[in-house]
């Protein structure tokens, strides 16, 4: 699986979305599952998968799928 697909899968798992659901345009609070609790679940999943520790600023700024890609890129995750 490509890194990008791995991120998509983690988004789907964190917010309880169906397999194959389109997540590329998702943003914080746009769906019921992406609330504060869902957000922290996503952060934990990304940190575990890519073995990294996100700064508080990056946790707060990860407000969309696109921002997640950008921020993970900063941590050396090649997307």
């Amino acid at each position: 699986m490509s890194t990008l697909d791995t991120i998509r899968t983690l988004f789907r798992q964190s917010f309880d979305l169906e397999d194959g659901a389109d997540v590329d345009d998702l943003a914080y609070r746009a769906i019921p599952g992406w609330d504060s609790v869902g957000h922290m679940r996503l952060i934990a999943a990304l940190e575990t998968e890519f073995d990294l520790m996100l700064e508080t600023d990056d946790v707060l700024d990860m407000s969309s799928f696109a921002k997640a890609r950008e921020i993970l890129g900063k941590y050396g995750v090649a997307v």
């Binding site: 914080y28 609330d35 504060s36 957000h39 922290m40 946790v59 707060l60």
Partner: peptide, 10 residues
Amino acid sequence: SDGVAARPFW
């Protein structure tokens, strides 16, 4: 209504 995980809340 932003919640603690969002920058606008802070």
